[in-house]
Nucleic acid binder design. Sequence first.
DNA 1: GATTATTAAATGGATCACCCATTCAATGGA
DNA 2: TCCATTGAATGGGTGATCCATTTAATAATC
Lengths: 288, 288
Amino acid sequence: MSTKSSPRAPQRSRAASPSRRERVSDHRAVGPPAAPTFKPIHTRRTFEEICERIREQLALGVLKPGDKLPAERELAQQLGVSRNVLREALRSLEMAGVLRLQKGVKGGAFIQQGDTRRMNEVMRDMLSLGTISVRELSEARVHVLDLVVQLACANARRADLDALEANIERTELATKEGRLLDRVECSREFYKLLAASTGNKVIAMIVDSVTEIHMRFVYAKVASSGVAMARLAEKRRQFLAALSERNVDLASRLLRSHLESVQRMLEQDPGAMSLHVALADVQPGMRR
Amino acid sequence: MSTKSSPRAPQRSRAASPSRRERVSDHRAVGPPAAPTFKPIHTRRTFEEICERIREQLALGVLKPGDKLPAERELAQQLGVSRNVLREALRSLEMAGVLRLQKGVKGGAFIQQGDTRRMNEVMRDMLSLGTISVRELSEARVHVLDLVVQLACANARRADLDALEANIERTELATKEGRLLDRVECSREFYKLLAASTGNKVIAMIVDSVTEIHMRFVYAKVASSGVAMARLAEKRRQFLAALSERNVDLASRLLRSHLESVQRMLEQDPGAMSLHVALADVQPGMRR
DNA sequence: GATTATTAAATGGATCACCCATTCAATGGA
DNA sequence: TCCATTGAATGGGTGATCCATTTAATAATC
């Protein structure tokens, strides 16, 4: 950690207390606002400072995944803050996927490998807050997947194709056994594998984030109506064949046409397609 | 809020205390693990529960941007938790851009309009943690921008083109006056405007997140070496002309060639291009 | 009566002092 | 040797208390 800049500032609030009165009397002594210097309005809060300090250490490479931060009590003392406010910072970093907190002796705050699922949460929040629309999300997904097909045709390795093949077999099995919701889960995984086959984790992350939401809608639709995409595995096989032959145009056409038919299925009964229904529930396997 | 499921559970830890002993004696009474039911390992922590409750209300539409949550003291009582742990939850949601906390009477926790910049932070963290590489990010950016050009050619409105035009003029001015770093800022804005001209906020968000990081590298490069892209404004004008004429191929070619030359510039002196330098500093205008 | 200080209350920001539950290593007994 | 016990470290959580900021109500002043 080496948090060298911790000048042991206990009782910071109390120490800063007189400054307010000073500022006020200064103001009156000078009269009307003589020099409108406009100091930074936003008083930085302690926890923000802490988060930034830790992120800084991360960016600098001083902290790496696997590293452990000092114990809460000790770190709080090092930073000269209360344990509670330190915990607020640690909580935020944990929610951000940067840390993992583990109990017990030998426990502590461990730097995590980055969790790409965090972007999914951003998308969900943006949708919940109405910043983005379902339409925009679907549209973006279609376009991004088109790009993915190009990249996958260019970069997919044998292992990627095999994984897709295995996924299709699971899809067939689920279809045969009538496990419709499992089949939706297979679909989610299919796109995850397809995205991974581009060999670019940034692209993969983006695709996952838009697909996760989309699949919630599909899940809700299938769960409520019992209908499901016909000839799914068959279509997947055709697509995979095109991908294996590096036939971009064909693969692209097949996927696009499939996406369109899924879209039609979803829009068939718009009344049931509540944003809230799809987002509210945390489906098993959909998260964590 | 209507948090109907808050059965006033004070001193939850103490109340749950006997259960541990019960479970242990159960285990011994039965002997070896008879029924490995595997209950959920992860004891849900209070603050997670709170975050989820609030997000649920959001997804359900009960809470909307602009709404105010009850005061901390009151909400804590409603939920049957301590104020401290409630604050941990609120902090997390604030960092997630969902809430804004405001002091003073008439203050409180207000639901925010979604902040699309949050995705930038995800990208930064992923890069800091080594989950994604600069190379993947650059590559993804090139591909996504290619997509953006297509969409912008199809969807850009007059206002979008005008905004781009105005941006180019600012770029010219900054060039003339030798304000190289301001020019980098103009570039960042250029891509933001370009992304916005697709008319799809999801796409725009994605582009912004990869561009923000990229521009940090450019910024660091320009700041350290003093070199800058030649004939920038001129190239921008050519591109904008192609965009205005809805000439996808030309616009696409121009942008791609520009991106390549920028990439060459960045890679010229790889030693100076430290990931850490680019990420560590919070540049003015780059954030918040 | 209008304007300007003053005061009071509400609220987030922060601290302190505890306590509980979990985990794991050290210890000790069978 | 093996297993149970113990104890310490650590995160999880609580409650009381104070500070700083903001706003509205109130009083003082012109």
